[in-house]
Protein backbone atom coordinates (compact mmCIF):
# COMPACT_ATOMS: atom_id res chain seq x y z
CA UNK A 1 0.00 0.00 0.00
CA UNK A 2 1.15 3.52 -0.83
CA UNK A 3 0.34 6.10 1.83
CA UNK A 4 0.71 9.84 2.22
CA UNK A 5 2.33 10.49 5.59
CA UNK A 6 2.61 14.29 5.52
CA UNK A 7 2.01 17.28 3.26
CA UNK A 8 2.66 21.00 3.19
CA UNK A 9 1.03 23.77 1.19
CA UNK A 10 2.45 27.25 0.60
CA UNK A 11 0.34 29.97 -1.01
CA UNK A 12 -0.88 33.52 -0.30
CA UNK A 13 2.15 34.09 1.95
CA UNK A 14 1.15 31.34 4.35
CA UNK A 15 2.24 27.81 5.12
CA UNK A 16 0.15 24.90 6.31
CA UNK A 17 1.25 21.42 7.35
CA UNK A 18 -1.34 18.65 7.04
CA UNK A 19 -4.02 21.32 6.71
CA UNK A 20 -3.01 23.29 9.82
CA UNK A 21 -1.63 26.84 9.33
CA UNK A 22 1.87 27.10 10.82
CA UNK A 23 3.37 30.29 9.43
CA UNK A 24 2.37 33.42 7.54
CA UNK A 25 3.76 36.76 6.42
CA UNK A 26 1.88 39.98 5.76
CA UNK A 27 -0.41 39.73 2.75
CA UNK A 28 1.53 42.40 0.86
CA UNK A 29 4.99 40.90 1.42
CA UNK A 30 6.71 40.07 -1.87
CA UNK A 31 7.66 36.47 -2.63
CA UNK A 32 11.38 37.05 -1.85
CA UNK A 33 10.41 38.69 1.46
CA UNK A 34 8.01 35.90 2.34
CA UNK A 35 10.55 33.18 1.50
CA UNK A 36 13.19 34.91 3.59
CA UNK A 37 10.85 35.16 6.59
CA UNK A 38 9.70 31.56 6.23
CA UNK A 39 13.33 30.40 6.06
CA UNK A 40 14.18 32.31 9.25
CA UNK A 41 11.15 30.85 11.02
CA UNK A 42 12.52 27.34 10.46
CA UNK A 43 15.72 28.06 12.38
CA UNK A 44 17.88 26.02 10.05
CA UNK A 45 21.29 26.88 8.67
CA UNK A 46 21.70 25.91 5.03
CA UNK A 47 23.90 28.45 3.16
CA UNK A 48 23.06 26.94 -0.26
CA UNK A 49 19.51 28.25 0.22
CA UNK A 50 20.65 31.81 -0.43
CA UNK A 51 22.07 30.94 -3.86
CA UNK A 52 18.86 29.34 -5.11
CA UNK A 53 16.38 30.97 -7.46
CA UNK A 54 12.87 31.65 -6.14
CA UNK A 55 11.43 28.40 -7.42
CA UNK A 56 14.10 26.27 -5.76
CA UNK A 57 13.72 28.23 -2.52
CA UNK A 58 9.97 27.66 -2.60
CA UNK A 59 10.33 23.92 -3.27
CA UNK A 60 13.05 23.62 -0.65
CA UNK A 61 10.96 25.32 2.07
CA UNK A 62 7.75 23.47 1.26
CA UNK A 63 9.64 20.18 1.50
CA UNK A 64 11.25 21.21 4.81
CA UNK A 65 7.79 21.97 6.21
CA UNK A 66 6.34 18.68 4.93
CA UNK A 67 9.24 16.78 6.54
CA UNK A 68 8.87 18.54 9.91
CA UNK A 69 8.03 16.13 12.74
CA UNK A 70 8.34 13.11 10.44
CA UNK A 71 10.98 10.40 10.35
CA UNK A 72 10.74 10.25 6.55
CA UNK A 73 14.44 10.97 5.93
CA UNK A 74 15.80 8.81 8.73
CA UNK A 75 13.51 5.83 8.20
CA UNK A 76 13.56 5.39 4.44
CA UNK A 77 16.20 3.94 2.12
CA UNK A 78 17.07 7.20 0.33
CA UNK A 79 18.51 5.37 -2.66
CA UNK A 80 14.91 4.27 -3.22
CA UNK A 81 13.28 7.63 -2.59
CA UNK A 82 11.88 9.14 -5.79
CA UNK A 83 11.33 12.87 -6.36
CA UNK A 84 8.43 13.67 -8.70
CA UNK A 85 7.70 17.37 -9.13
CA UNK A 86 5.55 19.30 -11.59
CA UNK A 87 4.49 22.83 -12.44
CA UNK A 88 3.05 24.97 -15.20
CA UNK A 89 5.74 27.54 -15.98
CA UNK A 90 8.81 25.28 -16.00
CA UNK A 91 11.65 27.70 -15.09
CA UNK A 92 10.13 30.70 -16.90
CA UNK A 93 10.85 33.25 -14.17
CA UNK A 94 14.59 32.55 -14.29
CA UNK A 95 14.47 32.09 -18.08
CA UNK A 96 13.33 35.72 -18.31
CA UNK A 97 16.23 36.84 -16.10
CA UNK A 98 18.75 35.04 -18.30
CA UNK A 99 17.10 36.32 -21.51
CA UNK A 100 17.20 39.87 -20.12
CA UNK A 101 20.95 39.52 -19.53
CA UNK A 102 21.53 38.84 -23.25
CA UNK A 103 18.90 41.13 -24.83
CA UNK A 104 21.21 44.12 -25.09
CA UNK A 105 24.54 43.62 -26.88
CA UNK A 106 26.00 46.70 -25.16
CA UNK A 107 24.96 45.41 -21.73
CA UNK A 108 25.59 41.68 -22.07
CA UNK A 109 26.02 39.78 -18.80
CA UNK A 110 24.91 36.13 -18.96
CA UNK A 111 25.79 34.41 -15.68
CA UNK A 112 26.28 30.71 -14.97
CA UNK A 113 24.76 31.25 -11.50
CA UNK A 114 21.50 32.29 -13.20
CA UNK A 115 21.67 30.01 -16.25
CA UNK A 116 21.90 26.82 -14.19
CA UNK A 117 18.43 27.60 -12.79
CA UNK A 118 16.88 27.73 -16.27
CA UNK A 119 16.02 24.03 -15.94
CA UNK A 120 13.01 23.15 -13.78
CA UNK A 121 14.54 19.91 -12.45
CA UNK A 122 17.27 21.88 -10.67
CA UNK A 123 14.69 22.14 -7.88
CA UNK A 124 14.77 18.32 -7.69
CA UNK A 125 18.57 18.44 -7.58
CA UNK A 126 18.48 20.89 -4.67
CA UNK A 127 16.18 18.57 -2.70
CA UNK A 128 18.35 15.57 -3.53
CA UNK A 129 21.48 17.36 -2.28
CA UNK A 130 19.81 18.69 0.87
CA UNK A 131 18.51 15.29 1.99
CA UNK A 132 20.98 12.93 0.23
CA UNK A 133 18.14 11.39 -1.74
CA UNK A 134 19.48 9.47 -4.76
CA UNK A 135 16.41 7.73 -6.18
CA UNK A 136 14.35 8.28 -9.34
CA UNK A 137 13.67 11.79 -10.68
CA UNK A 138 10.97 13.24 -12.93
CA UNK A 139 9.89 16.81 -13.60
CA UNK A 140 6.56 17.15 -15.45
CA UNK A 141 4.96 20.28 -16.87
CA UNK A 142 1.16 20.54 -16.92
CA UNK A 143 -1.25 23.45 -17.35
CA UNK A 144 -2.62 23.16 -13.82
CA UNK A 145 -1.97 21.03 -10.75
CA UNK A 146 -2.74 17.57 -12.12
CA UNK A 147 -3.46 15.06 -9.35
CA UNK A 148 -3.96 12.27 -11.88
CA UNK A 149 -0.56 12.78 -13.52
CA UNK A 150 1.30 12.97 -10.19
CA UNK A 151 -0.48 10.09 -8.45
CA UNK A 152 -0.43 7.84 -11.49
CA UNK A 153 3.29 8.30 -12.19
CA UNK A 154 4.24 8.09 -8.51
CA UNK A 155 2.43 4.74 -8.31
CA UNK A 156 4.35 3.50 -11.35
CA UNK A 157 7.70 4.55 -9.97
CA UNK A 158 6.87 3.03 -6.56
CA UNK A 159 5.97 -0.19 -8.33
CA UNK A 160 9.17 -0.24 -10.44
CA UNK A 161 12.02 1.32 -8.48
CA UNK A 162 11.12 3.22 -5.30
CA UNK A 163 9.83 2.61 -1.78
CA UNK A 164 9.08 6.24 -0.90
CA UNK A 165 8.57 9.50 -2.77
CA UNK A 166 8.62 13.27 -2.41
CA UNK A 167 5.93 14.58 -4.77
CA UNK A 168 4.17 17.76 -5.65
CA UNK A 169 3.82 21.09 -7.39
CA UNK A 170 6.30 23.99 -7.23
CA UNK A 171 5.24 26.97 -9.33
CA UNK A 172 6.57 30.52 -9.67
CA UNK A 173 5.24 32.65 -12.51
CA UNK A 174 5.61 36.43 -12.26
CA UNK A 175 3.91 37.32 -8.99
CA UNK A 176 1.87 34.13 -8.74
CA UNK A 177 3.34 31.21 -6.83
CA UNK A 178 2.29 28.03 -5.07
CA UNK A 179 3.95 24.95 -3.64
CA UNK A 180 2.32 21.72 -2.49
CA UNK A 181 4.51 18.82 -1.38
CA UNK A 182 3.35 15.42 -0.14
CA UNK A 183 5.43 12.53 1.16
CA UNK A 184 4.61 8.95 0.23
CA UNK A 185 5.75 5.67 1.80
CA UNK A 186 5.01 2.07 0.92
CA UNK A 187 5.75 0.70 4.38
CA UNK A 188 3.38 0.42 7.33
CA UNK A 189 2.79 3.35 9.63
CA UNK A 190 5.57 3.52 12.21
CA UNK A 191 5.34 7.12 13.30
CA UNK A 192 2.43 8.30 15.40
CA UNK A 193 3.06 11.96 14.59
CA UNK A 194 2.21 11.60 10.94
CA UNK A 195 -1.06 11.41 9.10
CA UNK A 196 -1.83 8.29 7.13
CA UNK A 197 -3.90 8.59 3.98
CA UNK A 198 -4.00 6.25 0.98
CA UNK A 199 -2.30 7.61 -2.14
CA UNK A 200 -4.99 8.13 -4.75
CA UNK A 201 -6.27 10.88 -6.99
CA UNK A 202 -9.28 11.65 -4.79
CA UNK A 203 -7.24 12.04 -1.59
CA UNK A 204 -4.59 14.18 -3.28
CA UNK A 205 -7.26 16.39 -4.83
CA UNK A 206 -8.94 16.75 -1.42
CA UNK A 207 -5.81 17.66 0.52
CA UNK A 208 -4.69 20.02 -2.25
CA UNK A 209 -8.04 21.85 -2.20
CA UNK A 210 -8.33 21.75 1.58
CA UNK A 211 -6.70 25.08 2.43
Amino acid sequence: MNNIISYAHIKNNSVSINGTPVFSSEKNATLPEFLSEAYKSMEISYPKFHKMDLQCKLGFLCTEFALQNTAFISENDLTKTAIVISNSASSLQTDKLHQHSIDDKTNYFPSPAVFVYTLPNISIGELAIRHKVTGENAFFVSKKFDAHLLVNYTELVLHDNASSAICGWVEVDDTAYEAFIFLVETKNNTNKNTIFKPLNQLVVTQIYNQT
Partner: peptide
Protein backbone atom coordinates in the same frame (compact mmCIF):
# COMPACT_ATOMS: atom_id res chain seq x y z
CA UNK B 1 5.54 16.89 -20.91
CA UNK B 2 8.86 15.99 -19.30
CA UNK B 3 11.59 18.57 -18.68
CA UNK B 4 14.42 16.89 -16.81
CA UNK B 5 17.56 18.49 -18.30
CA UNK B 6 19.78 16.31 -20.46
CA UNK B 7 18.28 12.98 -19.39
CA UNK B 8 14.78 14.04 -20.57
CA UNK B 9 14.80 11.98 -23.78
CA UNK B 10 15.99 8.72 -22.25
CA UNK B 11 13.85 9.21 -19.14
CA UNK B 12 10.81 9.78 -21.40
CA UNK B 13 11.45 6.37 -22.99
CA UNK B 14 11.75 4.76 -19.53
CA UNK B 15 8.52 6.47 -18.44
CA UNK B 16 6.81 5.26 -21.63
CA UNK B 17 7.83 1.71 -20.73
CA UNK B 18 6.32 2.14 -17.25
CA UNK B 19 3.04 3.47 -18.64
CA UNK B 20 2.77 0.55 -21.02
CA UNK B 21 3.64 -2.06 -18.38
CA UNK B 22 0.91 -0.64 -16.13
Amino acid sequence: VLSNACISGLLAIIIAKRYIES
